[in-house]
Nucleic acid binder design. Structure first.
Lengths: 225, 225
DNA sequence: AAAATTCTACCGACCGGTCGGTTGGCATTT
DNA sequence: AAATGCCAACCGACCGGTCGGTAGAATTTT
């Protein structure tokens, strides 16, 4: 069952008190089902009754776990952003060589997207369900990611003889291509995750940024029946 | 005033009868203002009162011009799609050489996006405001575009010695990069439209697909203060 | 040319229905 | 007995959409 896995490990974090995990586990289930419905129907088209019913309780019961519809959306988005931080930015920022850093970033982000594409699309699509202040917070967190990519590409341009086009446009297109995966990737698709990662790595890192040696550019596609 | 220009020439088309254009002109104004508000707030967060007020009438008056909220959205989306057909697909499909065809397509589509980025984002974001049948129609129209790009890239791979990676992934990334422009392009940005088009052409056609001669790959970015 | 008629563009008032959110209370667990 | 987990019932606000009507321009009839 290729379900998304964002929230299901929440209860396993070391908790302040021993068996308080019940509520957090239930909350994680609610987040998970809410994410799926919001992804499928859109935030505004999803009522709290929809979410409650899918989670196996009533709207009033749901309010035992959340404080408002917007809080729920905001929490879901921040959980997704936390994953980007922990799974992509943190590992990549430990790599000193900018070329290697970029490859690690692509690999980690592609993996994350293919695991959590629903969360990524919700983060992109549903920001106008948030109040202005919270929308701004989410934008800031996204900006951090762009900045990281920008600086890495700029460093490659400055410190190596790789020929990079305009760093701004390259960064936007680079991240755009990655994010766009969340719109087209599906677990039952033609290629395996590894094949897709290889292709994206070739398209973005080797070609678009320009890290590929001419020899590497000749890599043929590995299509599958 | 860098406003979008989708609908303002509608009244100028040769009309069946002489002075019937008034209603169509007004309708075009309504579409234009509705597009702006729906882009800014999202479809569900935009009430018909919002649109009516911005168009200078009441909700009941608005219903003199539209038949339902969903019809309005559907009409806006189809107008945008019509533009893609007439401004991008039609000119490009007349070019026989696939490499040149791809360049024409990128140039035309980049121009369209920079002129009508609000319409493009609405088409992408608000499809779930449509009934299933209409949503399917919009998807089909998008699919036609993907198919056109796919076949062009496939033709390049088959008929030339250009080394193309997996055509499917390349197509999705290629179109994704273009569409993504609608999310980041703003008229008051750092680069001119021509500079952006040059950069996108270099990133997508020369590099990602692989049409650039090694010499062309060395083109430096033309950044502006 | 005047009068009668029709049509266009529009609005105030209202309707059924749904939404997010609240309240008070009832079992079950601790 | 205290806390937890949950729900039936309810509320005010707002939504998309409708309806009856009207001011005035355009058209037709006389």
């Amino acid at each position: 069952m290729p379900e998304n896995l964002i929230f299901e490990n929440i209860g396993k974090r070391p908790l302040p008190l021993s068996k308080k995990s019940n509520k957090e586990v239930r909350l994680a289930q609610i987040f998970k089902v809410a994410l799926r419905i919001i992804h499928d129907q859109g935030y505004y088209a999803t009522s709290l009754n929809d979410i409650a019913k899918a989670a196996g309780l009533t709207k009033a019961g749901l309010y035992h776990y959340i404080s408002s519809k917007e809080d729920l959306l905001y929490a879901i988005m921040n959980f997704g952003m936390d994953l980007v931080d922990s799974d992509v930015l943190e590992p990549a920022s430990k790599v000193i060589d900018p070329q290697e850093r970029l490859r690690i970033l692509v690999k980690a982000y592609a993996n994350l997207i293919m695991e959590e594409w629903q969360a990524i699309t919700v983060i992109i699509n549903e920001t106008n369900g948030l109040t202005a202040a919270r929308r701004q917070n989410i934008r800031k967190r996204r900006q951090v990611f762009y900045q990281f990519v920008y600086e890495t590409i700029q460093q490659i341009k400055d410190e190596t003889d790789v020929k990079v086009l305009d760093v701004g446009v390259t960064t936007l297109s680079f991240v755009g291509c990655l994010v766009w995966m969340a719109y087209w990737y599906r677990p039952d698709g033609r290629l395996t995750k590894e094949q897709i990662t290889d292709q994206i790595m070739g398209l973005l890192v080797d070609r678009m940024v320009g890290l590929g040696a001419p020899a590497e550019l000749v890599i043929e596609s590995r299509t599958v029946a």
